[in-house]
Design a protein around this nucleic acid. Structure first.
Lengths: 338, 338
DNA sequence: ATGAAAGCGCTAACAA
DNA sequence: TTGTTAGCGCTTTCAT
């Protein structure tokens, strides 16, 4: 029939083929009602015959929006972030957006450059779990109208909408629970204590300890290192005087579980509570008592806030959603449930 | 100084401000050597003063490529896929690509529509862990030049490049290991048996059983349901005659661990091997013997294949990478390591 | 070494 | 109801 058509059909091809103008075809594409029904049908027929697919890049260029949102987390394979991403993606899809994910690998320089990449891609919004909320690491590279939502870790001094959890209060409760069990020498294990999240948890822990007249003690781990490279943690795990351990995030929990494996019997020799739940916590022996963070809700709420902003929520003041956690009592804390 | 500049500066702004033509500015942006050094410096200065950021959408529209790759998996929060995504994203970033991730939620219709979305976004390539490789679910909606790599689950009858693991052989070995331990009544637990991946594993299991003169028996689970809604699995877990269980993927493992929790002592009453490793397998009591799939390598190789294709690998025949797994012997199979 | 002009695929005035 | 005409921001012949 026609000449050799190598590349994908454009809207112009559709228009020509249906004998209408470009604009009319465009109207049909966008579901405008201003077109006579018979034409609509005819044009749609041509579209499907040609296998026409609108080019979102062109559309975005024109509309100055990409219908894409960027999401950046410290580690894509961390189950907490993975769940958050899953929730964000779902809400995004339901609203016609796609999600571009990147990892900062806990590196501030990389975080900046990744944000820059996303900005150049014209993402309409950004959801960030920053690698370090202590300083505002990127507001200087954000364009005027870009909407940003921070999750998990808020950014000090910045006015972004945020979704966080009750870190301090939850840590206090968990600590108190251990104290109620009769433990006195309770050690907190934390990584990246410069993070607001971790600092708050440590704060809550310290608070509870002091209130009970006990001496707080904590130990900082190197995220990247194995248990072998974290002498301090290893010592804590082996120390017979330590009665209980409170791990302040998933990474710490993994590390301490490793350390304890060879040293002590959890629940008996030492009690343990973990901040961050994960699929298998219940299956361990003894099952792990955890502070469960609502990872999916975090992602879902962040996506909702962002979509709200993109759909014209002009609120001057930033929305700050703080979600509750849940202390899931299982056996490692000394409870004998089940 | 100047008039009110609301929107982001464009390359034209840069050109005007530096007193050169648009093309010269473009050359500088792209690092062309055909410009006098002093001009380069001057233009770059203007760029950074204005806070200029190239618009990748415009660039992509012109170049007919987006420098984005799409990735679609059945479930974003599954640790196996999360690790694969992490690896893909890393390789992509190193090569100037971004990754748009979506989930098919194990739903073929959704998978199709998500692919369609990605195609409209003009992704340059697609990495797919399909929800069902039995039928080719989408080749009809792919445009001419789109590169596709399948991971984990190949697509029956299609000629895409693929990265998979030695499912059959690995399952055979794991089964044989249990047989060597003296177990005779070994049950395989599988979900989505219509998947090539799962079918192969089941095949390997059956093979080994028959070869040993034992009767293969398997049980299919409903992925979405809890243990309560999976009577068959629950029965298997409670059945005193069952000597060993081989779970054919992560979801099955979770389910069986739940089921076994209330019923039997793993390693003693019943032996267990899981296809799919995960962070905590070692920490369970007893620690879990697993067939470890190299999730990161899978992602990395897929990304490499894709980038190779995008950079002009014209090979007619498709590349089929098959990665080995590793049988990680821990205690749940009856081994008394450590 | 540099610039003018055309156009990627689409949408939005503004007419008709 | 429909079509014409400009661009969105960038790259790219083809001159100069």
């Amino acid at each position: 029939m026609a000449a050799e058509k190598k590349s994908a059909p454009t809207l112009e091809d559709v228009a020509r083929e249906s004998g209408v103008s470009l604009k009319t075809a465009s109207r049909v594409l966008n579901g405008s009602l201003q077109v006579r029904p018979d034409k609509v049908a005819r044009i749609q027929a041509v579209m499907s015959r040609l296998g026409y697919r609108p080019n979102e890049l062109a559309r975005g260029l024109k509309a100055k929006r990409s219908s894409a949102i960027g999401m950046i987390v410290p580690r894509l394979s961390d189950p907490f972030y993975a769940s958050a991403i899953e929730a964000v993606q779902q809400v995004a899809r339901e609203n016609g957006y796609v999600v571009i994910v990147t990892s900062s690998a806990n590196d501030q320089a990389l975080e900046r450059s990744e944000i820059s990449t996303l900005v150049r891609r014209q993402v309409d919004g950004l959801i960030i779990a920053t690698a370090n909320g202590k300083h505002d690491n990127f507001s200087d590279i954000l364009p005027e109208g870009l909407q940003v939502i921070t999750i998990d870790e808020p950014i000090r001094g910045a006015a972004y909408d945020s979704v966080t959890v009750t870190n301090k209060q939850s840590a206090r409760e968990a600590t108190q629970h251990m104290i109620d069990h009769g433990d006195r020498r309770i050690v907190a294990v934390v990584s990246r204590p410069y993070l607001h999240t971790c600092a708050e948890r440590l704060f809550g822990y310290t608070d509870a300890m002091k209130q009970a007249g006990l001496a707080p003690q904590h130990c900082v781990v190197d995220q990247e290192g194995s248990i072998e490279r974290n002498r301090a943690v290893k010592d804590i795990c082996a120390d017979p005087k330590v009665e209980a351990i409170f791990t302040l995030n998933w990474v710490c929990t993994m590390l301490v579980l490793h350390g304890l494996k060879q040293a002590k019997k959890i629940g008996k020799d030492v009690r343990l509570i973990s901040f961050d739940d994960f699929e298998l916590a219940e299956m361990l022996s003894p099952s792990l008592t955890v502070v469960r963070q609502p990872a999916s809700e975090l992602g879902r709420e962040a996506a909702r806030l962002l979509l709200g902003r993109l759909n014209g929520d002009e609120s001057e003041k930033s929305h700050r959603i703080v979600l509750p956690t849940q202390l899931v009592l299982r056996n490692s804390c000394g409870c004998h449930s089940r």
